[in-house]
Design a protein around this nucleic acid. Sequence first.
DNA 1: TTGCGATTCGCCTTTTATTCGCTAGAATGT
DNA 2: ACATTCTAGCGAATAAAAGGCGAATCGCAA
Lengths: 200, 200
Amino acid sequence: MAITRRQKDVLDFLTSFTQRCGYSPSYEEIASGLGVNSLATVHKHITNLQNKGLLQRAHNRSRSIDVLPARSSKKGTDRLPLLGRIAAGRPVEAVETAETISLSDILGNREVFALEVRGDSMRDEHIVSGDYVLVERTRTAREGEIVVALVDGTDATLKRFYREGSMIRLQPSNSEMAPIFAPAAAVTIQGKVLGVLRKY
Amino acid sequence: MAITRRQKDVLDFLTSFTQRCGYSPSYEEIASGLGVNSLATVHKHITNLQNKGLLQRAHNRSRSIDVLPARSSKKGTDRLPLLGRIAAGRPVEAVETAETISLSDILGNREVFALEVRGDSMRDEHIVSGDYVLVERTRTAREGEIVVALVDGTDATLKRFYREGSMIRLQPSNSEMAPIFAPAAAVTIQGKVLGVLRKY
DNA sequence: TTGCGATTCGCCTTTTATTCGCTAGAATGT
DNA sequence: ACATTCTAGCGAATAAAAGGCGAATCGCAA
């Protein structure tokens, strides 16, 4: 069920509009939201998405688009079998294993959001540009944890967190970059990193 | 739920009126509340909303409208908000964004399994011991893709895949390790890597 | 029975969805 | 390398639904 970049745009717009307004958008509103000038284009997108089973729509009915939550809960795509370890020797068997892994193993029941990483400040930590970090929203952090921190209220960065007396050291994991030292009062923790997700 | 702008207005008015007064409004009150002059219009709205299952009403009875509780949106842990990019400057806002990321964005509907990585053979690719690679089960691969490959039926490894004439080169992403050369017949592709998941 | 609110009936305007024909680029298969 | 299919886009014409009106009618309850 290949979904194109543009189709995801459309789907995201629909979800956000519906969330924001409480009703679904008209084709014209979709068009202007996506920056296209033709209703036909919108119509084609909607039709395609409907054919892919990602949304429902009543024929010729105004504002009748329903985005289906089926995207995730379709077939348990959120939980996948953990078949073993690689580079160990044996072929990967199609074994029925009880072991599985899923996002919820990482997330638990916590309030989590994702951020796309830009820059190389955590390169030695093997977090690179384009990765998504999964961040739990907290205001505190422990020594050595990777955090999203705000310095002087303006600069959000991804660093390791260390306390040094009344100062905070935010340590990049990149030997070419210098740590940031700041008084504890100037640093706001926005969350700590629970995991990393990368997509090829 | 397939609702129009005006219908939401009506529904909102009904909810707030009922909340405020403890009883439901007459059609005339609804009309003036909505700024319309015809009871017929109101009636049409109410009927439509009833057909959509959003409210209940007794026939020909005064003030007999019951707004049915809206279905709550269960929030799945498998889809999380993508709040923005990090190391960009601004604080991470608690914005309601439509953009989301989830495992299914990576997986699609393909047959996927996970493997825990051991060893450092893909270190320069920022895949390290302890990470989980998400692998689509395929028997073919394209030039340069990261694959799970079986050499001589015994040795499963994680490498980049290159074809060189009748030979296959399996290239580790680690400058300290040498590539594996093998005849195409001796190499079995077990799958290709779609993504990486890391858990701290 | 009588009155008030609910219902129904045409008829109108505005909003919205649908369809058609066309161009162009990307992805795929032979 | 080529043809084919799919995605993405444009503008215009058409059809249908949504929203609205006033007036006539109906039905319950006081």
